[in-house]
Amino acid sequence: MKTLLESMAHGAVRCMYCDDSRGTDIDHFQPLAMAPLRVFVWDNHLLACSFCNSNAKRDEFPVDPEGACLLVDPTTDDPADHLFLMLRSGEYGYHTAKGEHTIRVFGLNRPDLVMGRKDAFFLACSALRDWHRLRQEGDPEADRVAQALRDSPFVDVVHSITRLAPGLAATVVGERTIPAVGQWRSVYGG
């Protein structure tokens, strides 16, 4: 099962929750203590790092009064519907109760992740500019830079950059990076 989950993970087989550490554990999204028969349900198995699985989430599974799960489910939910990343600070904010509970349960704003996302933001802006320049020059190394960006830890940073509203993008990433972001959107989507 772990091999199949790894084959579906992006890039360097990152944790489905924090997107930083390598996914080394199989997490039962709905804990088996709550629903033992879900051990046989494929989409209840997610690749997670040991910190998110064993130290952060453990058997937590908050639900609303109707019993609906209050965690972002990476198999069905678009995290951007519930969470937003403040690129310069590296912190997550939330749009919904699912987002709020997900940040709390997985510790998504713990200091090591915040610092990692802040660093990833500056590196991603630099790599986007480099990719754009190489692409304009017709250098095949541009493809390797793009692959490295898509496989990098904190790929959520790259996704957040490319989803910035046009009026906000220049303020967040700076004028020098705007052409690269536009080109990236046209090649890889936003």
Rank of each mutant, 00 (worst) to 15 (best):
K2T: 08
K2Y: 14
E6H: 14
M8C: 12
A9Q: 04
G11D: 00
A12E: 14
V13C: 13
R14Y: 12
D19Y: 06
G23K: 03
T24M: 08
D25E: 15
I26G: 00
A33N: 09
M34D: 14
V41F: 13
C52Q: 02
N53W: 05
D59P: 00
D64L: 13
L70I: 10
L71C: 04
D73C: 05
T76I: 12
P79T: 06
P79M: 04
H82N: 12
L83S: 01
R88I: 10
G90V: 00
G90H: 01
G90S: 01
G93V: 07
Y94G: 05
Y94K: 01
H95W: 13
T96Q: 06
T96I: 09
A97Q: 14
I103K: 09
L108T: 09
P111G: 02
V114D: 06
M115F: 03
M115G: 04
G116P: 08
R117N: 05
R117H: 04
F122K: 07
S126V: 01
A127F: 00
A127W: 05
W131R: 02
W131I: 04
R133K: 13
L134S: 02
R144M: 14
S152T: 10
V157T: 02
V158L: 15
R163S: 07
P166D: 12
G174P: 10
E175K: 11
E175V: 09
R176S: 15
T177M: 08
P179H: 02
Q183L: 01
Y188G: 05
G189V: 10
